[in-house]
Simulated scan of single mutants.
Amino acid sequence: MAMKTTACRILDTLKIPYTLHEYDWDEDSLDAVTVAGKLGISPEQIFKTLVVRGDKTGVFMVCIPGNKKLDLKVLATVSKNKKVEMVPVNDLQALTGYIRGGVSPLGVKKRYPIYIDESVEDLDPVIISGGRRGLSISLKGADLVRACKATLCPTSRS
């Protein structure tokens, strides 16, 4: 049985049902498509959590389908910024408490606004990071939005 992470405890508190999935990971293949293959699901069901910084709003998070690329221009408009850029990998842990490959939209050490791609709403299940490498959480897309208090929007392109 996997050890519960902060992300799991948040879902427990909200009484949101979820399933944990553990998988073997390595430093060179932390991408969502690889993880989807290991879990035997389609990449659009895995949502990767990215940390970005807007020129007006500062740091925020965005969750997009694993088979898509973040559209920084669209995200800037949606988040009321002129410009948005990815936060350097080396800053992830200081900002979120998580390391690359284990960033969950839940249980972040500081509460940042979260935007989730609008395709999540109808997904059941959707898979997110459990808060550490090799651990994923499976839950309903609508429950993820509720747990994160997220804003739904277009965020990505193929």
Rank of each mutant, 00 (worst) to 15 (best):
E121P: 03
C8H: 09
V62T: 11
P88H: 09
L95P: 00
T19P: 00
F47C: 02
A7H: 02
P65F: 00
E118L: 11
L11Y: 02
L70T: 05
V89Y: 12
L139A: 04
L72N: 08
S136T: 08
S104L: 03
D117A: 09
T19H: 08
G97V: 09
W25K: 02
G37Q: 13
M3S: 10
G66N: 02
G58D: 10
P113V: 02
V120P: 07
V51W: 02
Y115D: 03
V74Y: 01
L70A: 12
A7P: 03
D28K: 15
K69P: 04
K80G: 05
K140A: 15
I64L: 05
L123M: 15
K38M: 08
D31Y: 13
G66D: 02
I41C: 15
V35N: 10
L39A: 12
V33C: 07
Y112S: 00
T151W: 07
E44D: 15
D31Q: 10
M1C: 11
I41H: 03
P17A: 14
R111E: 12
I99M: 11
V52D: 04
G58Q: 10
P125K: 02
Y23L: 11
D26R: 14
K73V: 14
D71Y: 08
P125R: 06
A76G: 06
P125Y: 07
T6G: 04
A36V: 09
D124V: 06
L50H: 01
D124F: 03
Y23Q: 11
G102Y: 01
G37E: 14
T96R: 09
R100T: 12
K73R: 15
L39V: 13
I10R: 06
H21D: 04
Y115A: 01
R111F: 06
V35C: 13
G58K: 08
R9F: 04
V35F: 05
C63I: 01
G58C: 11
S129Y: 05
S119D: 13
V52P: 01
R9L: 15
K56N: 13
V52G: 01
G66C: 10
T13L: 12
S104V: 07
K68Y: 12
P43N: 12
Y18F: 15
D26A: 13
L75P: 09
S119F: 05
P17L: 10
L135R: 04
T5R: 00
L144Q: 11
E44F: 13
I99Q: 09
I10F: 03
V103Y: 03
D28C: 10
A147H: 07
R111M: 07
R100A: 15
V126P: 00
V126C: 13
P105A: 04
Y23P: 11
C63V: 00
L95R: 03
E27C: 09
V126Q: 03
L11P: 03
D55V: 15
M1R: 08
V103Q: 02
L75E: 05
P154A: 12
A36M: 08
Y98M: 08
R157P: 00
M3V: 14
T49C: 12
R100M: 15
W25C: 00
P105N: 05
N90E: 14
R157Q: 14
A36D: 09
N90L: 12
L72W: 02
L106H: 00
L30M: 11
E27P: 04
L14Q: 14
L135Y: 04
